[in-house]
Design a protein around this nucleic acid. Sequence first.
DNA 1: CCTCTCAAAATATGATCAAATTAATCAGTG
DNA 2: CACTGATTAATTTGATCATATTTTGAGAGG
Lengths: 231, 231
Amino acid sequence: MDGNAQKVTGKEAAKAQLPAHETIYRKLREQILFGEIAPGQPVTIQGLTDRLNAGMTPVREAIRRLTSEGALEFQGNRRVIVPQLTAENIAEIIYARQWLESHLGLRATERAEPADLTELTRLDDALDKAIARGDLQGYLEYNYRFHAKIYELAQAPILAAMAEGLWLRFGPSLRVVCGRIGTQNLPDRHKDLLHAMRTGDAEGAARACREDMLQGMEQVRDMLDPPGAAN
Amino acid sequence: MDGNAQKVTGKEAAKAQLPAHETIYRKLREQILFGEIAPGQPVTIQGLTDRLNAGMTPVREAIRRLTSEGALEFQGNRRVIVPQLTAENIAEIIYARQWLESHLGLRATERAEPADLTELTRLDDALDKAIARGDLQGYLEYNYRFHAKIYELAQAPILAAMAEGLWLRFGPSLRVVCGRIGTQNLPDRHKDLLHAMRTGDAEGAARACREDMLQGMEQVRDMLDPPGAAN
DNA sequence: CCTCTCAAAATATGATCAAATTAATCAGTG
DNA sequence: CACTGATTAATTTGATCATATTTTGAGAGG
């Protein structure tokens, strides 16, 4: 057989061997998660086929998936947008995350091994550096990856999926918030959390997770709710 | 224009004017929810295009949506099946539903109007009749619609979506359980719940929701876990 | 202000290509 | 000579694309 680069779909076979609808899903997911697409902004199929240089069917599938996860919203007609959170939405998310984050943090602490703690510390350092250099994008990414790692450690796939689904809902708004208040006064209870995890204090870790979440979500709520943010 | 039946896609234009991918999604969703497709059973695209007499792309979209909701599982290769719950999965679902059901039941009680209570009573009657005549399919449907109505009344779309997503996960297994134990000794705390709702006892309603859920889920757990259910 | 026309975008189909599972054949061994 | 094992052929299924059809929204004209 020729040892050449195997052609995959016609493109450069970058990370291929993964189906196109999967890679497109992941790309679009990250773009939403890290706020590259703002709340209220429309997401068109044709726009994505152009922007991501992909076929129509895979894009369609990716959009449906993200719609099911609440990351996109299907307007009554056939238009799709990134949803804008209402105050009620935020309250629901906070309520759900209180349970989810505490529980996942607790389970993660019970199951974390030294290598995992090292990895978490690494991610938190990278996060700090991103804050120091005012890198909003980096902050959002490392913050997400830090929490995603905790979900993974909890070994509770269904609850983790619920938690990640919520991230997709508030991600775009979080970006807006952080863009306004700057990267300086961002909440970071990660130090407390890491300390609790290292000492095996599962209850303390659960508390820290909950507090970290609350601080972040309250900033989102305060921005969306009381100021003159009339649409 | 001709006053005739407007052709929609080629079929009889049943409930049309709704996109095909939407109707297919709903059909498939119900088939999973009410256990017409058993856990472990594969779901093929081509099988659905034949069975539902539809095109390939809409079927594909429906499958992706349901995969995102946990109703279907994407095997490492490209095959899709209805997932089989593990004991851990069930524990996670129980944990999540404890707070979801309680909270939604509480909110529903606070917001329910007389007409809503009438509707709930009607659904519960239909459920009782289905049990009396040994109609498993009817039991599952009315039971679901009873709870879905409560979610709707709670006016908390995000939490409701989470609760409905969990139904999709245990629906197929619930069918298996009920098929084995018969329709006679099925749990039904609906009377307690309705009483609490009528008297405005939100806390009591929350408790009843939780109890009803627990009884059902424990039967699922007991079937999957301890007996000689070796695959 | 309402209506009609037009363009842009989404929906849906079928064809084509690639992958994977199943079936079948063939060799090797007890 | 029958049976097990594996390699290969064939069929089934999934992935992707290009195209035709339909719908929505907007703008021009009455």
